[in-house]
């Protein structure tokens, strides 16, 4: 049963990430070169916040499978994050590459903490 819920969550999370990325890029305006990967950053931070909320709320196992493992797992990505970082480094933008790693890590961690706090503390 949980398998199905994970698949459904994944089938929603991945397109959400894709649409987020497109929306963020469109927001940067036509002709503006796509430099810092804000789209992936936004999806990763939003997914981490949602996962923090779910963790703090201690949701049931089916809800966890659907929303945490499926939705949040697929809304966020490590593969695109690392490839975009590699491209920044390979095109002579080492500072932006490092900034992307640090900012993503700090924002993701902060979002998980914030979500868990908002949802009622770390299960204490």
């Amino acid at each position: 049963m949980n398998w199905l819920l994970v698949a459904i969550g994944g089938a929603v999370g991945a397109p959400l990430r894709y649409l987020t990325d497109r929306a963020v890029q469109a927001h940067q305006g036509p002709g503006v070169p796509y430099v810092f990967p804000w789209g992936t950053f936004t999806a990763n931070t939003a997914g981490s916040l949602l996962l923090g909320l779910l963790t703090g709320a201690a949701v049931s196992s089916p809800a966890h499978a659907l929303l945490a493992t499926g939705l949040c797992g697929a809304l966020t990505t490590y593969s695109t994050f690392s490839y975009e970082t590699l491209r920044l480094a390979e095109t002579g933008r080492a500072f932006l590459a490092a900034a992307n790693v640090l900012a993503s890590l700090l924002a993701g961690l902060g979002a998980v903490f914030l979500g868990a706090e908002l949802a009622g503390g770390f299960g204490g």
């Binding site: 981490s48 923090g52 797992g73 809304l75 966020t76 990505t77 695109t80 993701g108 961690l109 998980v112």
Partner: peptide
Amino acid sequence: VGVLGGFTTFSTYASGVS
């Protein structure tokens, strides 16, 4: 975007560190 994006995860990583 689909398979590898769905396979890898940043949220579970951040939550694991936390």
